[in-house]
Design a protein around this nucleic acid. Structure first.
Lengths: 220, 220
DNA sequence: CAAAAAAATTAGGCAATCCAAAGAAGAAGT
DNA sequence: ACTTCTTCTTTGGATTGCCTAATTTTTTTG
């Protein structure tokens, strides 16, 4: 398993390949690699039994592929947690650093790190950390954007994107924050929210509100 | 700079390339790569101004190459220190783990790690950690094997080799231990030593005694 | 000092992974 | 349903870094 193959598995996983078919194009875009190269690599992964490739229809992960991908995500998020909690990195900056480290992390190291960090449940931006045997609970897919005015909900996770995380950091929003939605401004305007116990309204851009997921059980 | 090029620089550094010419053969042996491939890679490194290659005579590092190599060694040893001190790895097991991590370590990460570890001076088996700007003090080259009977000296560093470190771990010898040499057994027999304050003699194999360096100022 | 041995270089190949461009398949609009 | 656009696959070519085998240079040795 080369680092590049791992990157393919991970992006397929992140695009939802564990429960649906993802397109060649999205992989190509996600990795910044030409579509032709993706087809090529995908057929290799299919030969190894890690993905199922239906030409022109899409690509999805086998159980084996899912397990590998979950392990990578686990390692990635353990490193992110380490960087924030122990090395005091800003939570917007950890992604690229963890990107490299995850490929050089043995299972033994991941376990040791997990112990050292005291078995964290989620990474700094709210992504659940899969268990050592590759199990992972389904993450929330309920968008902050879809919460109705007046509702109070808990933020669960943010997409792992540098720009977004920097923006949210500036707005002082974190996973686990409890917020109330005041209103949705029209024409793709911002979502106006308030943090629990505070009075200052916060404007969350339309786009950002589509990249933030909330705890589904906190909605009626 | 690819990881493989980094490995070449590092092995050249470790073989003494910062102050003398090292042979193609030793690099080939050290990396487990065919001699022909070494020649090829070395000329690329020479093109980039990292090494000086005098055909048939040897290879040495330029100042630029020295700096790169020292940075790698620094990262490697910071990780080793982290693994032992924070993750409670056995000091014989850290080498291979650090080998991978060092190539994925940004300068920023190295600095953060250095702070977290409280600016360690040496890695677990005694190698000095170069500073962030690539400076490194010359390491001791005085062999334990060359200490005369009756002398008391301080162990400084062990070569970074798994087998050796496991062996020394079993013998309960560590860098900074103060020991007295009792006698050299003939015919490449073991060196008999005693740790300061203890009475039990310890046999250190002939070969191991040639892979342990002592503090030069503790010899007369 | 010449023959043998050791070490280094050169040459031809192979595998992995990328790209660009051409052609095939599927989806979308009128 | 037919044309057009988009997406996907195929093909041919580049690059990196490795290997083996052959050749050249240097060192060692009788």
């Amino acid at each position: 398993m080369t680092p590049m193959k791992e990157d393919y598995l991970k992006i397929i996983f992140e695009l939802g390949g564990s429960h649906k078919k993802v397109s060649n194009k999205d992989i190509s875009l996600g990795l910044g690699i030409a579509a032709g190269s993706v087809t090529e690599m995908v057929s290799k992964l299919a030969d190894e039994g890690l993905v199922i490739h239906e030409p022109y229809a899409g690509i999805s992960l086998t159980d084996e592929g899912k397990k590998h991908a979950a392990e990578l995500v686990r390692k990635h998020r353990l490193w992110e947690t380490f960087l924030v909690e122990k090395l005091h990195y800003n939570f917007a900056d950890v992604h690229s650093e963890a990107e490299g480290l995850e490929h050089q992390t043995s299972d033994r190291l991941a376990t040791a790190l997990d112990n050292f960090l005291n078995h964290p449940q989620a990474c700094p931006h709210g992504g659940v950390i899969p268990s050592a045997n590759g199990e992972f609970p389904e993450a929330s897919h309920v968008l902050l954007a879809d919460v109705e005015d007046g509702q109070t909900v808990t933020l669960e996770r943010f997409l792992d994107n540098h720009e977004l995380l920097t923006y949210l950091d500036e707005l002082n929003l974190r996973p686990d924050d409890k917020i109330t939605v005041i209103r949705h401004e029209p024409f793709e305007g911002p979502l106006v929210i308030k943090k629990a116990g505070e009075d200052v309204p916060i404007n969350v851009s339309y786009k950002a509100s589509h990249n933030i997921f909330i705890q589904p059980n906190s909605m009626k």
